[in-house]
Amino acid sequence: MNNTKTAPYVLWSFYDKINVQHRYILSLCIQYGWSKLHKVTGQEVADLGALDKWLRGTHKSGQSPIKKPLQDMDHKELSKVISALESMTLKKHSNA
């Protein structure tokens, strides 16, 4: 049996710190307001829980155009996610 589904308890927002697109997505999350203080460093970091919900399509502010874990997305799919987050961020800040 070939089970390619991600376990439901695994965050879809797990990222590769070397991947430039993943790092930009985290930056966009912070710009959008999905952030929290890191317990150890006190630095503002992306809220992976909020990103996870958005990627799964269960976040109150909408859903990702690609519903799969970041680690499973190719370059083109990540570009679509980036475009959606950029649009959300721009819209949020233009209404402020």
Rank of each mutant, 00 (worst) to 15 (best):
M1V: 04
L90I: 11
V45S: 10
V40D: 11
D52A: 13
Q31L: 14
L28A: 00
E77C: 14
S35L: 07
Q43C: 05
T41H: 10
K5H: 14
I18G: 03
G62D: 01
V20K: 15
G33N: 08
P69D: 05
K36H: 11
I25V: 12
N2R: 08
Y24C: 00
H38A: 06
S64A: 07
L26D: 06
H38S: 05
G57M: 10
L51F: 10
K76Y: 00
S35W: 11
M73E: 01
S13N: 11
H93M: 13
K39Y: 14
K60W: 07
A50E: 15
H75D: 03
A84K: 03
N3I: 14
K80C: 11
S94E: 08
I25L: 06
Y9M: 09
Q43H: 07
S35Y: 06
V10D: 05
Y9G: 06
V10S: 06
V40P: 05
N95A: 09
I18Q: 13
M88N: 06
I25P: 01
Q71V: 14
C29E: 11
A7N: 12
V20P: 12
I18V: 09
Q71I: 15
N19Q: 09
S94D: 02
L11H: 04
V40H: 13
V81I: 00
I82P: 08
H93R: 13
N3M: 06
M88G: 11
K67C: 09
K76T: 15
D74F: 00
L70Q: 04
L11F: 02
R23I: 12
G42W: 04
